[in-house]
């Protein structure tokens, strides 16, 4: 496809009119490295296999036959955070679980994304009022990119959340690969729990 514009510069009429080689004229695409990389990256956002509660069942349903996450390149849930790009926090995060969620997030390689799926992960959901043991929003522990509300959100809503993540992928710069600028802020100061008494049962 011949390019008409030089990325913000004056139109390159010369290229289109004067390139005599039909092969390169038809098949060469000129783009920026950022765009090419982002395009490939957004096509294979691999989620972490990470279910917590009821929302995880809807996440499984989204992965399974009818809704088929795989259509959008995300049908390969990884069992280890080291290989995953996307963490879908699906379900209620309790105070006992919060340090583990944080650790899993830390173990993922940059660039990484987080979808908060369901009311519980956004602000405590149905347990916000009397759930003494429920974390009131996972964004008190890890930064969240996309919030998908619902209790549980429908699979279509989760798919929409995935598209939002793809948008984020598109708009990224190679120079900010660890996403330090793009990443939302975490509020609330988190401390690791002190070591528990029992051997082998700590985080």
């Amino acid at each position: 496809m011949p390019l008409k514009k030089n990325n913000g510069g004056p139109p390159r009429q010369d290229l289109e009119n004067e390139n005599p080689d039909p092969l390169t004229k038809e098949n060469v695409i000129i783009t920026s490295v950022d765009k090419a990389l982002n395009w490939t990256r957004q096509a294979s956002v691999w989620p972490l296999t990470f279910g917590l509660a009821c929302c995880a069942i809807e996440m499984m349903a989204t992965l399974a036959a009818k809704y088929d996450f795989d259509r959008f390149g995300s049908g390969v849930p990884r069992a280890t955070p080291r290989q995953a790009d996307l963490m879908i926090v699906a379900g209620t995060v309790s105070h006992k679980m919060a340090p583990r969620v944080k650790r899993l997030f830390d173990q993922m390689a940059d660039p990484k994304y987080v979808i908060a799926m369901g009311g519980c992960v956004i602000k405590g959901g149905p347990y916000a009022k009397y759930g003494y043991h429920v974390l009131q929003g996972v964004d008190r522990v890890i930064p969240v990119d996309v919030y998908v509300p619902g209790c549980p959100p429908r699979p279509e809503a989760l798919l929409e959340g995935l598209f939002k993540v793809k948008e984020l992928c598109y708009n990224e710069k190679l120079s900010d690969r660890d996403r330090s600028k793009a990443r939302p802020k975490v509020f609330g100061g988190f401390e690791w729990p002190t070591k528990t008494k029992k051997e082998g049962q700590s985080a």
């Binding site: 917590l52 509660a53 379900g91 209620t92 309790s94 006992k96 679980m97 583990r100 149905p126 347990y127 009022k129 009397y130 759930g131 003494y132 043991h133 429920v134 049962q201």
Partner: peptide, 16 residues
């Protein structure tokens, strides 16, 4: 088995 990672306080919520 070590349980409790999903303790969502059902009983407290129900009696409230």
């Amino acid at each position: 088995p070590v349980v409790g990672y999903l303790h969502r306080c059902f009983e407290k919520c129900a009696e409230s």
